[in-house]
């Protein structure tokens, strides 16, 4: 009644993919036999060592600044580009395709690759990390915002053309207010993602709390590692909370 032949094939294929993926990832639950190792290891994390708290907080703000600056600069850069990369507002077919392809090219390069290149060429520290986050987010936000522009209600655009406004101004005024809540919502989401990214970029020398976590871990200072992790968790939760608050206020 509810199942068709094609459903059975789908399920069979899924089971096959799960099996192949398990083989490729050496997925084996019996490895948890040595679970005691983990308890031994984690017991070294406590008690937490609060002596380096001020430095950790400073690094946390550095991480936040990296994420904010990277994603916000990306938003500023990408807003005008998005209008070129949207089918309905692009001034020419060529520019539309060119900008779309450029955006997906930029997007296809992970931040960590930008990070590795920039940290090597510009030197260690948060600045290359900011640029890496910015580049990647130009690609991501460009795609998201240009799709928002394409989905905007054409009514106001026609109305602005009909009053005799210049085409670009008509597009700007009729589309931006429509998509603004969604743009901000996407921006906040990318900001949250950028925080996690900047932690990873810290591991390769990008500074911030990520780098501190990595250093503490590599030098076996597990009682500091635990506090680093705690601070990161609190930071992410607070930002999540703030972002949803701001989003609700705007929409």
């Amino acid at each position: 009644m509810w199942f068709r032949k094609s459903n059975i094939i789908t399920v069979a294929l899924l089971i096959l993919f799960v099996y192949i993926s398990m083989r490729l990832t050496e997925f084996d639950l019996t490895k948890f036999r040595d679970f005691r190792n983990m308890i031994d290891f984690l017991s070294q994390w406590f008690p937490m060592d609060f002596s380096k708290l001020p430095g950790m907080l400073e690094d946390t703000f550095e991480t936040l600044a990296m994420a904010f600056l990277g994603s916000f600069l990306a938003l500023l850069i990408v807003l005008p580009i998005s209008f070129i990369a949207a089918r309905n507002t692009s001034s020419s077919k060529f520019l539309f395709h060119f900008s779309r392809i450029s955006l997906s090219f930029v997007r296809s390069i992970p931040e960590i690759v930008f990070g590795l290149i920039l940290l090597t060429t510009l030197g260690l520290g948060p600045f290359p990390a900011v640029i890496a986050i910015m580049f990647h987010n130009v690609g991501v936000l460009g795609k998201l915002i240009s799709e928002l522009i394409e989905a905007a209600d054409p009514g106001p655009q026609e109305a602005m053309r009909a009053v005799g406004a210049k085409k670009w101004l008509a597009n700007l005024f009729s589309i931006l207010p429509q998509i603004w809540p969604n743009v901000l919502s996407q921006f906040f989401y990318r900001f949250e993602v950028a925080i996690r990214t900047s932690l990873i970029l810290g591991f390769i020398g990008g500074g911030g709390i990520g780098q501190r976590l990595f250093n503490d871990f590599k030098t076996f200072q597990y009682s500091s590692v635990s506090l680093d992790v705690l601070i990161i968790m609190i930071m992410v939760i607070i930002i999540d909370f703030l972002a949803s608050f701001v989003r609700n206020r705007i929409i």
Binding site: G155, P156, G164
Partner: peptide, 21 residues
């Protein structure tokens, strides 16, 4: 065309106002 249009008002079925303004 813009100069011609600006002397022609147009009213739409779905109003076509700019939201949030």
């Amino acid at each position: 065309l813009r100069k011609v249009r600006r002397e022609m008002g147009m009213v739409f079925q779905h109003f076509s106002l700019i939201p949030r303004l």
